[in-house]
C-alpha cells in the first residue's frame, strides 16, 4: 500500500500540477499570450517538434561537453585541494571569488574571445558546474577518518596508495552526489549562454520565439528544458545509487 504510494506519488503530483494549471487558465480566462494552457503547449510541442528536437539536441550536446570538462577539472582540483591543506588555503579566495561571479556576466567576455555559438555555451556550462564537483571531492578527501588511513599506513603504504585505496573510494559518494547537482547547473549554464549569445539551442529558440510573441513556443521550450533536467538528474541519481550503495545503505535493506 505505502509502496504503491511511494511509486505513484511523483506522478500524481506532477499530473495534478498540470491539471490545476489547465483549470486555472480556463476558470480565470487567462490569455494564451500571458500563460498558455498545458494542452496548448502540448499541441505546440507536437507542431514544432522538429525545431524543438534540433535545438534541444544542441543544448544537450553543449551541456554534456561542458559537464564532461567540469568533471575532469573538478575531480582534479578537488583531489589537489582535498589532499593538501596548503593548496586549499592558497586557492580558496580565487575559487570562491570566481564562483561568486554570476555566469551571465562572463558570457559577453566569452563571446569576445570565441564568437557567438557553441564554445561560449560549453564554457559557461563548465564554469558553473565544476565548482560543486571540486568542493565535494575535496570535502570527501578531507574528511576521511584517520583510522581508515591508519589501516593503510600501518602496512607501509605510500601517499598515493592511501589516496587510491581509501581516499578516492571514500570520496565517491561525495563525487556522485555532486554530479546530480552539477549536471543541472551545466544545463542552466548552457541555456543561459544560448539565450544571450547563440543562434542555435533551446535558449536561442526561446529568445527568438519571445521576440515573435510566440508565447506557447516559449513555454514549450521551458517544458523541454525541465524535462531534460529531470531525466539527466535521474540518470545520475541512478548511477549514484549503483556505485555508492555502501554509503547510502538503509538499515532495513534486505540482502
Amino acid at each position: 500500500m505505502s509502496f504503491l504510494n511511494q511509486k505513484a506519488l511523483p506522478w500524481v503530483i506532477t499530473i495534478g500540477f498540470f491539471a490545476v494549471w489547465e483549470l486555472a487558465c480556463i476558470v480565470f480566462h487567462i490569455d494564451r499570450f500571458i500563460l498558455p494552457r498545458p494542452s496548448e503547449i502540448a499541441v505546440e510541442m507536437v507542431d514544432k517538434w522538429n525545431a524543438l528536437l534540433i535545438n534541444s539536441l544542441q543544448t544537450f550536446y553543449t551541456t554534456m561537453a561542458g559537464f564532461a570538462v567540469a568533471v575532469v577539472v573538478g575531480l582534479f582540483l578537488g583531489m589537489l585541494v582535498g589532499a593538501s591543506p596548503t593548496v586549499y588555503r592558497g586557492l580558496y579566495p580565487i575559487m570562491v571569488g570566481l564562483n561568486s561571479i554570476p555566469k551571465v556576466a562572463i558570457v559577453p567576455i566569452l563571446v569576445i574571445w570565441f564568437g557567438i555559438g557553441t564554445i561560449p555555451a560549453i564554457l559557461t556550462a563548465f564554469s558553473i558546474a565544476f565548482f560543486p564537483i571540486m568542493v565535494n571531492v575535496a570535502t570527501g578527501l578531507a574528511t576521511i577518518e584517520p583510522e581508515l588511513q591508519d589501516v593503510l599506513r600501518a602496512l607501509g603504504a605510500s601517499k598515493w596508495q592511501i589516496l587510491r585505496k581509501v581516499g578516492l573510494p571514500r570520496a565517491m559518494p561525495f563525487f556522485f552526489a555532486s554530479l546530480k547537482v552539477a549536471i543541472t547547473l551545466a544545463f542552466i549554464g548552457a541555456v543561459v549562454a544560448e539565450t544571450v549569445a547563440s543562434d542555435v539551442g533551446i535558449g536561442y529558440l526561446m529568445m527568438s520565439a519571445s521576440a515573435r510573441f510566440d508565447v506557447p513556443l516559449v513555454f514549450a521550450g521551458l517544458l523541454v528544458i525541465a524535462l531534460m533536467g529531470v531525466v539527466m538528474y535521474e540518470a545520475f541519481a541512478m548511477v549514484e545509487r549503483r556505485v555508492t550503495f555502501w554509503a547510502t545503505r538503509s538499515s532495513q535493506s534486505a540482502s
Partner: peptide
C-alpha cells in the same frame, strides 16, 4: 606488521574477502 585495530576499520566499500586481501595489495 599486521595490525588488528580495536574498532572495526574494515573498508565499507569492500566485501569481506576484498578487505582481507587488502594487505596483499600493499605489502
Amino acid at each position: 606488521c599486521g595490525m588488528a585495530f580495536q574498532n572495526s576499520t574494515l573498508l565499507p566499500w569492500r566485501t569481506t574477502l576484498d578487505n582481507v586481501l587488502l594487505p596483499l595489495e600493499i605489502v
